[in-house]
Simulated assay, not measured.
Amino acid sequence: MGNREDLLEGAKRCLYEKGYARTTARDVATAAGVSLAAIGYHYGTKEALMNTALLQALEEWGEDLGRTMAVEADPAATPAQRLESVWAQVLQSFAAHRPLWSVQFEVLGRLDPEMQETFAAANRGARLALAELFGDFAGGTPTETEALALGTFYQAILGGVATQWLVDPDSALTGAQFVSAVRSLAPLST
């Protein structure tokens, strides 16, 4: 790896270990084993590096969750059983990636206009990825507009449950509870 990649890996380690606000440029340079000046040379600012590291960590989480779900998927399962299984995998990912979830909430409270723009741009892709990740549970292939709406719904549920899980993991919405809640909304579709 070169200095640029080392900085990115060092920044991700610092995000997980220290959080966003408590990480200094010196922390990242030390974790990466490079000079402090390398941050400016490769990323311009520590914030740009940290934002890039956070977005990459989120992408890696999504890819990891997608791989796990692909292995766990039972093609003979009903849509409700698949949804319950998917949600169980999401809850397990909270535990496996707790620092990432903590950092996300820390960052949301500190969004500057540039960071907000970066996250907003990533939202569309994240929402489409969530719609694909959770799969088609209603039958048929959704249009892009429908997939964005589904992804937005899943993102809202995911963020809300992640918040609850960080505070009290034992009270987080289980897969069975999630399916039950979705079923209780079914009469709204008529």
Rank of each mutant, 00 (worst) to 15 (best):
residue 68 T to D: 13
residue 75 P to C: 04
residue 26 R to Q: 15
residue 146 E to S: 11
residue 151 G to T: 13
residue 171 S to C: 04
residue 7 L to G: 00
residue 188 L to W: 10
residue 134 F to V: 05
residue 76 A to F: 14
residue 164 Q to G: 07
residue 46 K to S: 06
residue 159 G to V: 01
residue 172 A to W: 00
residue 59 E to W: 14
residue 19 G to R: 06
residue 34 V to L: 03
residue 166 L to E: 00
residue 8 L to K: 03
residue 88 A to T: 15
residue 24 T to W: 02
residue 138 A to V: 15
residue 75 P to N: 08
residue 157 I to N: 10
residue 118 T to I: 14
residue 61 W to D: 06
residue 146 E to G: 04
residue 147 A to Y: 06
residue 169 P to N: 07
residue 184 S to E: 08
residue 75 P to F: 01
residue 107 V to L: 12
residue 103 V to S: 00
residue 6 D to M: 14
residue 22 R to L: 13
residue 139 G to E: 07
residue 176 A to W: 04
residue 54 L to A: 07
residue 12 K to L: 08
residue 145 T to N: 09
residue 101 W to R: 11
residue 57 A to G: 06
residue 174 T to E: 06
residue 143 T to L: 02
residue 176 A to Y: 10
residue 66 G to Q: 08
residue 168 D to W: 11
residue 186 A to G: 08
residue 82 R to M: 03
residue 62 G to F: 10
residue 113 P to V: 04
residue 113 P to K: 03
residue 56 Q to S: 15
residue 173 L to V: 14
residue 170 D to Q: 15
residue 71 V to E: 14
residue 63 E to W: 13
residue 87 W to P: 00
residue 114 E to D: 03
residue 146 E to Y: 08
residue 151 G to A: 10
residue 100 L to P: 02
residue 131 A to R: 00
residue 107 V to D: 10
residue 12 K to W: 04
residue 166 L to R: 05
residue 25 A to F: 07
residue 152 T to I: 07
residue 178 F to G: 01
residue 179 V to R: 00
residue 7 L to H: 03
residue 87 W to Y: 01
residue 160 G to F: 02
residue 53 A to Q: 08
residue 78 T to Y: 06
residue 113 P to N: 09
residue 117 E to I: 13
residue 153 F to Q: 11
residue 172 A to H: 00
residue 30 T to N: 15
residue 55 L to K: 03
residue 54 L to I: 13
residue 134 F to D: 00
residue 48 A to H: 14
residue 165 W to A: 03
residue 71 V to N: 07
residue 117 E to H: 13
residue 147 A to G: 05
residue 163 T to C: 13
residue 1 M to R: 13
residue 90 V to K: 01
residue 64 D to E: 15
residue 50 M to W: 08
residue 89 Q to H: 11
residue 128 L to E: 02
residue 51 N to R: 13
residue 72 E to L: 12
residue 183 R to C: 08
residue 2 G to K: 06
residue 186 A to C: 10
residue 146 E to P: 05
residue 100 L to N: 12
residue 82 R to C: 02
residue 19 G to D: 06
residue 152 T to A: 13
residue 50 M to H: 07
residue 108 L to Q: 12
residue 92 Q to A: 06
residue 70 A to M: 12
residue 166 L to I: 02
residue 78 T to M: 06
residue 15 L to H: 05
residue 129 A to T: 07
residue 174 T to W: 08
residue 31 A to Y: 03
residue 138 A to P: 11
residue 138 A to C: 12
residue 160 G to L: 01
residue 106 E to P: 05
residue 93 S to E: 09
residue 78 T to Q: 07
residue 108 L to E: 11
residue 78 T to P: 02
residue 165 W to F: 08
residue 145 T to R: 14
residue 155 Q to A: 10
residue 115 M to W: 13
residue 26 R to K: 13
residue 128 L to F: 04
residue 166 L to G: 02
residue 131 A to S: 07
residue 39 I to Q: 03
residue 148 L to E: 09
residue 148 L to Y: 13
residue 94 F to M: 07
residue 55 L to Q: 02
residue 24 T to F: 06
residue 15 L to D: 00
residue 72 E to Y: 07
residue 108 L to K: 11
residue 148 L to Q: 09
residue 33 G to F: 03
residue 122 A to R: 07
residue 151 G to V: 04
residue 90 V to W: 05
residue 21 A to M: 12
residue 165 W to C: 01
residue 23 T to L: 03
residue 98 R to Y: 10
residue 76 A to D: 13
residue 125 G to F: 00
residue 133 L to V: 04
residue 170 D to E: 15
residue 150 L to Y: 10
residue 157 I to Q: 12
residue 132 E to P: 15
residue 22 R to V: 04
residue 31 A to K: 02
